[in-house]
Design a binder for these strands. Structure first.
Lengths: 342, 342
DNA sequence: GTCAAAAATGCACACGTGTGCAAGCGGAGT
DNA sequence: ACTCCGCTTGCACACGTGTGCATTTTTGAC
């Protein structure tokens, strides 16, 4: 059995209330007593019971984090950002992966409610509205990150995908490309729509038409989905000269597919990714992509939840806070001017 | 304020003890009363307070997981395995990354002791012995995964790296290679020693000598370390014809470096990785590697901790359990017979 | 030395849940 | 009618911590 304040009290010859106050730094207790108690506590290797404390204080010093897949390199970098901030502020993390499975989402929300987490960060691109509503109704603040339905939530961190996609597209246009295609991930909801929208806006601004068959979405964002989606474009009579991919993972699959098809990148076809995951610089050729500040996004999300937990006494909690972060274009070697037409 | 069993008791016209028993399925309570109480609980959206419960039962239904870096694709796959099992058994996970920083390790252990996690899984290749001892002394079972000092712990899951490395080496020897070099990660402790040892054993069995300069270790296991470590071998007068890398990430860096140096893989030099991370199949050329069953390793680790928590009434907790799992060789395209010498 | 004010400490209850024990109730057997 | 038994339920305390309030001790001024 772990040592309790009562054990310390007995050893120090005081009441348990005095111990409690001394350890919490309550000024009512004299400095000498406090010091003595602290010493005893250290000797006995005392660690306060978070359970007992939270029972009284209604605070657990724990945050819940829902992520679709822990092993997705994009989300795991965000996770790291969340963790750095949370740990710095003395908060622990309950992390669960939903696998985009409604049943698992239910279990996760139940576990988080039972553990009375102080706040929740949802990093899944989609999440059952009924589940999140249940949390909100019971006073658990929620911050969503890059969620497809960010409008449904009062607090969100969002990367400006439209801007990113516009920058990529503009760059391709400046290189001379006119036949630019988009390969999306239909499962990602708003994210793929934003990235497509950015491309469309910039193309329209340049007066370039986009044939319907130049927009293709496949259900998934892994390399294998990129590989599969590529076939659609290879079958076209008029192939695009540049392929804007939903994310780096799909682009990696596309690079592989183009290589198998014997098509030179970037000489014959330019390819772009999105996210700048760790491996994108090690592809062959290195991938031109858009760098989302993933670590920073996670950190901001954590800071936002924590702010909601200690509302500024003057202002009170903000009624609505949606932060949109911008990234930057990373030009590497998978893009070049289009092949000269004879 | 969340609803409590007292609220339910009031609404159902019984005492809170009856509610407690009914919800826990205690057979003392009549079926009709139980059913009625369950109904009321559902109506009021009751979720038991894990804090209050654990105060009485000394169980938190939570496991602590320490990982060196959450965003390491190797560990995050193991994490996913842990999570799948834990969630299935109704356990939540406290996940923290240590960054191999002693100070962070201290904070993590403190947080886990305060939250009274039922057990801990350490996935970090190194971890402060004094910190883990502190947990053990207070009755928290620990399972280590691929830890460099597995002998110091009673319960561990370990992948048979020696065997894996032997398989890789044997395969290279069978291809005809005689000049085989090893690029290690000096920070990974036992892991790199095992992999080196496997190579040495197989080389010796084949009667092939290993020049001292064919063994090179660099401090880190990321692509950039592979890239940096490659220089050592490129400077050699007698270059190796095959390069066995500590892991896939370093191999990815090596592939990049060889390409920059204008050396054909596998025609001029074979390269192997280790782990089979997601991206290894998408490198150029696809990487020959050794597949660790990462998800399974995580799952087994979780099962082992859970077993320790519910010791078999007959046998009691096993005094020692160390499980060594085997993987399999994945031959892809980064390996070929050595170039013919004229 | 007295007394009041200030400082330090202890008492007792609360948080939400689980459980040993006693108590209530109804029915069956004598 | 009385007793005994089994089935249900309530009472009361415990888990470890925090805190309002009463209580004790110390301090300072006269």
């Amino acid at each position: 059995m772990a040592t309790t304040i009562k054990d310390i009290a007995k050893r120090a010859g005081v009441s348990h209330s005095t111990v409690s106050r001394a350890l919490r730094g309550n000024p009512l207790i004299s400095d000498e007593t406090s010091e003595r108690i602290r010493l005893v506590a250290r000797e006995m290797s005392y660690h306060p019971s978070a359970a007992a404390r939270s029972l009284k204080t209604n605070q657990t010093q724990a945050l819940g984090v829902v992520v679709s897949n822990i092993d997705d390199p994009f989300f795991s970098e965000i996770l790291q950002g969340i963790e750095d901030v949370a740990q710095g502020e003395g908060y622990s993390l309950f992390i669960s992966s939903s696998q985009s499975d409604t049943n698992r989402e239910r279990m996760i929300v139940q576990a988080m409610r039972e553990h009375r987490v102080d706040g929740v960060i949802i990093c899944s691109s989609s999440f059952s509205t009924s589940q999140s509503r249940q949390l909100l109704e019971h006073g658990v603040p929620i911050v969503v990150v890059n969620n497809q339905a960010a409008e449904d939530y009062r607090y969100s961190i969002y990367h400006d995908d439209v801007d990113g996609s516009r920058q990529i597209t503009r760059y391709l246009i400046e290189l001379g490309h006119q036949r630019i295609a988009y390969l999306g991930n239909s499962l990602s909801g708003r994210t793929t729509l934003d990235r497509l929208s950015g491309l469309q806006q910039e193309m329209e601004a340049a007066g370039l038409p986009i044939p319907a068959e130049y927009i293709h979405q496949v259900p998934g964002g892994e390399p294998e989905h990129g590989l599969a989606g590529l076939d659609h474009f290879l079958d076209l009579a008029d192939r695009p000269t540049a392929l804007v991919c939903f994310n780096d993972m799909m682009a990696i699959g596309v690079l592989k597919g183009l290589q198998l098809a014997g098509i030179q990148v970037p000489a014959e076809c330019s390819v772009t990714g999105f996210d700048n995951i760790v491996f994108s610089v090690f592809t062959n050729p290195p991938l031109t992509t858009f760098d989302q500040p993933k670590h920073y996004i996670g950190a901001e999300a954590a800071r936002l939840v924590l702010d909601l937990l200690r509302p500024d006494p003057e202002k009170g909690a903000p009624a609505l806070k949606s932060q949109t972060l911008k990234g930057r274009l990373l030009v590497r070697k998978s893009t070049a001017p289009p092949p000269v037409l004879y």
